[in-house]
Design a protein around this nucleic acid. Structure first.
Lengths: 233, 233
DNA sequence: CCAAAAGTGTTCCGTATACACCCATGA
DNA sequence: TCATGGGTGTATACGGAACACTTTTGG
């Protein structure tokens, strides 16, 4: 029974901005839309919120459908509800950004979707207001990442400090002093040194580290105050 | 024409967490609900998103209906979409917190609603998940206010520095060194000294200031790094 | 041995923080 | 004149930032 029978039905959707990091640049995962309207155009992965699920649930479902991965890091980053945002119906879309380790995704083959990674700044034109959604997600990512160490979600289990540094450089489009960055990170107790070294990217080799998940989960860190003042916006 | 005829209709609502500051404590404005279900119980001010408006538009409309004020500072602070959050229908609610100068509101009489200010920590039981909405709004307010000088929206045009300090003390539930706070704020160029003094609260009197709106609007400030490390969460 | 990246030690400087002290005024 | 809150001056400490320098190793 519904008490609100006189109220208008508005369709509720979710769209996901899926960020990945390939070691060189930030990327987003886009799909060729498989249904009308706008079939065969590039767009964000999305879907409608079903009666038995919450918006987060819908986003999570949609992400798993596409990547085969569960429990991805995910966060609301906007609401797009302009009455005219879709020409063919009234849809309010809630956006979520997700962070995934590209290497995990490579092993998954999702035949149902034509999906492809694009460098964040060189992607094809997108439908509706998906461009703005990405812009908002990028901004939110920057803000969050300046306050919380979420960018680790973009890296493999084992990573080197130069890798993280280069990730931060991509996200904020700056150059970091790797020496100070390294020290700051180590002082945070957020990462644990492993015995192994990555020798692919340098002769000396950089030690691998793994995340100290206890600290990662519990501690809410503004560990990157070190970053210059661009940190917010 | 709607392409998505097979998709489920979910009702979309907004709820507003309206913060005010009376000089002593933070307050929220609640109303006695005038319709079923849950008629006559205390709740946040809310309403359904109409076909011709965005969620922000709906929140703004609802705020004006209640307070008579336009262009209030307003910000999205959550999405509540659990399928079972309302027993009597499927409603997803988007929440916005609003900041208003209590004194402005006092002059307005909105006969249509039974509304009342409550101290933030001593309000009556609320319907549905409105309690959680307030908790989320409070958290978001703290985070935002640590990065941006939004709390000025809670003060009158003319205010004294001790007033702002006490506002920050309320929001974060801490004690500040008013002397350092004052200096920091002045150094930010965010406020402009007036000739007049407030003699109500002390014998010496504290100078009134007004906001430097140019700086307020343009500069994105983390001017309260001065606050201890509780600032986020 | 040299180039190049990883990593350490050291210095400098701004700013958060603490707190002594002065100011203005009503009772 | 004294109690009270407003406000300034000054010392300290910590952490961001810059950078010289050492380490490691493949070519």
């Amino acid at each position: 029974m519904n008490f609100y029978t006189s109220e208008p039905g508005i369709l509720l959707a979710v769209d996901c901005i899926i960020f990945g990091f390939n070691g060189e640049s930030l990327e987003i995962l886009l799909i060729k839309r498989g249904f009308e309207p706008e079939r065969n155009k590039w767009s964000l992965m999305g879907g409608f919120v079903q009666p038995d699920e919450s918006p987060e649930g819908a986003a999570s479902r949609v992400l798993t459908q596409l990547t085969g991965l569960e429990d991805l890091y995910m966060e609301n980053c906007g609401i797009f509800g302009d009455p005219k945002r879709e020409s063919q119906g009234r849809v309010v879309s809630i956006t979520y950004f997700a962070l995934i380790d590209t290497h995990k995704y490579e092993h998954i083959i999702s035949d149902h979707y034509e999906a492809k990674w694009f460098p964040l700044d060189q992607h094809p034109n997108l439908i509706f207001d998906h461009e703005q959604m990405i812009a908002a997600a990028k901004k939110e990512l920057r803000t969050k990442a300046a306050l919380y160490p979420i960018l680790f979600e973009l890296l493999p289990e084992k990573f080197t400090i130069p890798q993280i540094a280069s990730l931060y450089e991509c996200v904020y489009n700056i150059e970091l002093d790797k020496r100070n960055f390294s020290r700051k990170l180590l002082a945070s107790d957020l990462i644990i040194k492993l015995k192994e070294k990555d020798k692919e990217n340098s002769k000396k080799g950089a030690f691998y580290y793994r995340l100290n998940t206890d600290i990662y989960k519990e501690k809410i860190m503004s560990f990157l105050r070190y970053l210059p003042s661009w940190s917010v916006d």
